[in-house]
């Protein structure tokens, strides 16, 4: 019985992994092909050519685009978490009039289609002189990272037992100390998770990045990938496209591997006992 259960469990794990990874695996296979071979279906690599990778990595600006993306995404995460942790404290631990309304207003920002704010944001970005700088992206990305991080952190912080905070208040701790010294250590799983999701969202954003930058050295990775094209207007360079996708996905996988101990570690049972 236990063995069957275990077998079924691992089967489930296997299915999850295969479904998640297969398209990526297929992208890797495709990235190793060139020319007409691209139009043939193969389940295993039949041809191993790194031409696509060399052509991506040696293209003048691609490494720079990766750096841009890293800089923008990291800044967005730091900013979003900083603003969101403090806001979440106020929204979850302090009772004041209009709190629900405020939460709903924050949420409402996420209700507007990105495409509809494009024109207004563009005027704003140009007006503030941020056009074609990474700050235009850091600035505009808060529109989708901030509501999300605020909400998630508010929910998590609300569930932290009140006794911990009371103890700190009795010790004379200011709210800032409570946040940084008491709550933050308890919230690592939530912080890392939301941070990671925000990072990925910023890393993948295309529309704003395309609109608010114009020079190749300022562009981010998704735009750089969107700009990969074949020798002629209609040709889609599948091989190179897939190679570039593989290259940009790897850092994220590494990031997850680094941070996952934090995600797992979670709360020690004793720390949160309510």
């Amino acid at each position: 019985m236990a063995i069957i259960k275990k077998a079924l469990f691992y089967l489930l794990v296997l299915v999850i992994v295969v479904v998640s990874v297969f398209p990526f695996y297929y992208a890797i296979i495709t990235s190793l092909k060139t020319g007409t071979a691209l139009f043939r279906v193969d389940f295993w690599p039949t041809q191993i050519s790194f031409d696509n990778y060399t052509s991506v990595l040696t293209s003048r600006n691609f490494p720079r685009n990766v750096l841009n993306s890293l800089f923008v995404s990291a800044s967005v995460v730091i900013l979003a978490l900083l603003f969101a942790v403090t806001a979440a404290f106020a929204l979850s631990r302090v009772r004041f009039r209009g709190r629900s309304l405020l939460l709903l207003t924050v949420l409402a920002v996420s209700m507007f289609p990105q495409i509809a704010v494009l024109a207004g944001l563009f005027e704003l970005v140009r007006g503030m002189g941020l056009y074609n700088t990474p700050f235009a992206l850091i600035f505009s990305y808060t529109i989708f990272t901030l509501p999300f991080t605020v909400w998630v952190l508010t929910t998590f912080m609300r569930d932290l037992p009140v006794e911990i905070e009371e103890a700190a208040i009795v010790d004379g701790a200011t709210p800032w100390v409570i946040i940084t010294k008491v709550f933050m250590p308890l919230m690592w799983p939530a912080l890392v998770t939301t941070g990671l999701l925000a990072f990925i969202a910023a890393w993948n954003e295309f529309l704003f990045a395309l609109t608010f930058t114009s020079s190749e050295v300022q562009r981010t990775v998704p735009v750089a990938i969107g700009l990969l094209s074949g020798a002629s207007q209609y040709e889609i360079p599948w091989g190179v496209l897939m190679a570039a996708s593989v290259i940009v996905t790897v850092p994220l996988v590494v990031l997850v591997l680094i941070f996952q101990r934090k995600i797992v570690a979670g709360l020690t049972a004793g720390g949160v006992k309510g």
Partner: peptide
């Protein structure tokens, strides 16, 4: 478990325009 967690995040990590094209 560590590897599985990294694996399931791959779909989310691939930029939308790329995964759509893929």
């Amino acid at each position: 478990r560590a590897l599985v967690r990294a694996a399931i995040l791959i779909p989310w990590a691939i930029p939308t325009i790329v995964s759509a094209k893929m």
